[in-house]
Nucleic acid binder design. Sequence first.
RNA 1: GGGAUUAUAGCUCAGUUGGCUAGAGCGCCACGUUGACAUCGUGGAGGUCAUAGGUUCGAGCCCUACUAAUCCCACCA
Length: 908
Amino acid sequence: MSESGKEFSMAKAYDPASIEQETYRRWESAGAFTAHRREGKKPFTIVMPPPNVTGQLHMGHAMDCVLQDSLVRFHRMKGDPTLWLPGTDHASIATEVKVVDQMREEGLTKEDVGREGFLKRAWAWKEEYGGRITRQLRRLGASCDWSRERFTMDEGCSAAVREVFCRLYEKKQIYRGARLVNWCTCCGTSISDAEVEYTEQKGHFWHLLYPVKETGEMLELATTRPETMLGDTAVAVNPEDERYAHLHGCHVILPLVGREIPIVCDEHADKSKGTGVVKITPAHDPNDYEVGQRHNLEVIRVFTYDGHMTGAEEKAENDALFASGKAAVGEARVMDTGKYAHLTTEACRREIVKDLEAGGYLKAVEDLSHEVGTCYRCHTNIEPMISIQWFVRMAPLAEPAIEAVRRGETRFVPERFTKTYLNWMENIRDWCISRHLWWGHRIPAWYCADCGATTVSREDVCTCGQCGSKNVTQDEDVLDTWFSSALWPFSTLGWPEETEDLKYFYPTNTLVTGYDIIFFWVARMIFSGIEQMGKPPFDTVVIHGLVRDALGRKMSKSLGNGIDPLEVIKQYGADALRFSLVLGISPGNDTRFSKEKVEMARNFANKIWNASRFVLMNVDKREPQMDRNALRLEDRWILTRYNEAVRQVTENFDKADYGLAAQKIYDFAWSEFCDWYIEMSKSALLGEDAKRRENTQAVLLTVLSGLLKLLHPFMPFVTEEVYSYLPGKQEESCMLSAWPKAEAALDFPEDCARMEGVMEMVRAIRNLRAGMNVQAGHRARLMVRPSSGWGEVLTAQEATFQRLAAVSTLSLLGEEEKPEGKTVSAVSGAGEFFIPLGELVDLEAEKKRLSKEKERLEGEIRRGEGKLGNPGFLGKAPAQLVESEKAKLETNRQMLTALEKQIADLCQ
RNA sequence: GGGAUUAUAGCUCAGUUGGCUAGAGCGCCACGUUGACAUCGUGGAGGUCAUAGGUUCGAGCCCUACUAAUCCCACCA
């Protein structure tokens, strides 16, 4: 315990820039963030959603980080062994795109440098930018355990990825096969269903005519993608559709191609939509693919994977594959599209439409606007394509993940997101996990060129597991980034090794993240945790909203409306940014970022700074002792209010209602501690009574130090700095101090009510003075005719009236005693009062003011009488409420009587 | 088509299990440098809590309907 804090020298205004970075360095070098296992004590663990390794901190990160940091600091102060595990994500596509861009500036392509060369560059990129975002998190004050920092592609995480892949493969929950996938021609890879973003686009319905071979009639159908018609292998009608009953078993001749394709009966064709006839292109449409499966249709691919039409070369290659017998089950045949070959799909569309029209096959063109799938990374339209990919079979994984959440083993806050999660999980399709990229975890599968067998292995493979041939090559592709992030809660703790950390910290407690990645990440962590660890990875998922700009728009690069958190920190300080991101938010809802809000938070930090400065200026260096038996009314009041603040803030933290917790601290600090208690304390501090002075100092210190602790999770820097100056404290660091507890022995509800009565009268006097335009410097006598029981209370608070209501002296009037001279008057619960204001008194204005007040009181009384005259209320409302209504009514009636008398006196 | 959210002061938003005479910040008006703070203080104006029903002694809060905005999921031949 120290005799006093640092040498007292606080600037008049708080300057965050001068202390933040130094404070953070002190914490970090002292190991304050490092988690320690303490057997027998339940830990509190959070894994940080890993930001992209080459990313930059944006407001979304900032909010996510601030919420986690606040929660983590709260738990650390509560004494839980607390671990906040940080790390970064390799972000397969995003990073690869950046490296490719960088190479393009040098005139190089991936092919030019080769896989090895490319990966070298990617790692170099990671080394160069990888530390940037973690440095930025430090600027925010993130108290995560950097000694345990992880990266999704570090050795341990990579081992975990491989282990999971092999286990799932061995359980036949990972398989490779030809399926229809979402293909991004720009990124050159498949993407999962979750990665497809639908956007509204203008397009057309082209109404086409396909001639029926057997009858010669023209069958009308519509399409939004006419270029796919080259790959049509059937036309479907609904079996119930009488219009086409006569065509069952017939064929159409595909225009432009001349291919004869069957008319099939399938439920997919909807009688009520369009003409009820659908063209079927199994290689390029998900629904058509399924129809094709049901009817064993040929699958003909007409697009290349880079978005062009297939030609003779592709067909030859494909033919050779089939000829060699190595084509995978379900692999598509490729068509030489002849005159359309090598055109982009868009160019081909124009050509096809032109040709169809020329051939008389185009009946009509209709405008339409429809939802088109785009890549969530580059927003290129995705092309559904038949392709051989790796998949995770989801049904067996989803089931326990659904159950765990249903049983409440994992709880979403706010609760409504449970539904979002369940709905997605219940309708989930197999997860396409292979990506045609180089940056990422390479798929641990080797193919034998001799026997065609696939070997999946934890170790790199040189010989075929089937035939022993050395002629094996590893799969070229890597895994979806989210495959490794799905393992984050346990891979980061050392899994598959049985580490001490893993045993102690898994399962983690709370996951804090935005609702935008529930599907990508949260859901996948849940089923992965259950599958690999047997337990869901966390008990609570706290979902927060997005940070939008001042106009409510999403912050985005393309709009250029993003605000750099680092700039805000430079200008206002990290505490101000942090507080502005927390105050006023409500769980799961979006929030708008505004400069005004940051200014408000900055002002609050300054207020705290100055309140502390005041306390420190007025507290002797030695440790003041609090004599609990000598506490005055105002002391008891602030201690009671402080207890209440402690209770509410703690409760709101536990409920993940951070916005309310912050609000409570703000209100308590500013509107109660500063506005009232500090002001009232001045009389005692400047007074002669040494004992009273010491007691006041003790109360000031107690409340201030508790307030700093309550605020610390949100504003770690200013609180730590100020705390360091406090004399006589138990703990050196605010960050490592104990979270405040409400002390029931210091609850004084009756005194609180008395103090509120005094405060009410102070407000009434101020109000009256302002209404009369009294000079601020003019001190006036106060004469009070107290309500019963209030005389002593008011007399004892004379100093409060003097200091806060510009009263010179306070005197009590007897029941029938009239104030001398010309006075203005008003009533409050504690009594009626009079202030001689001589020539300032304007009779007419006074009458007006008093009757306005009278009207208000009468309204109140009517309301109270209505309530209390209602037998239902008396019978059913809680007794306590009835009592307080009665008391209120009684007070109001007394006040009204007094007021009426005052008005009558005025009229004399 | 299914689901969700939001609607409260000029603006941005709080309002926890119904007890409210509906709050805050910013903005606005008036006054003010009283030794923590002008990044401040005091006072004021400003709201039929989107609308219509209902439940209840009592509804901003619960229920039903409706309107508007936003989002998510699915589908769109």
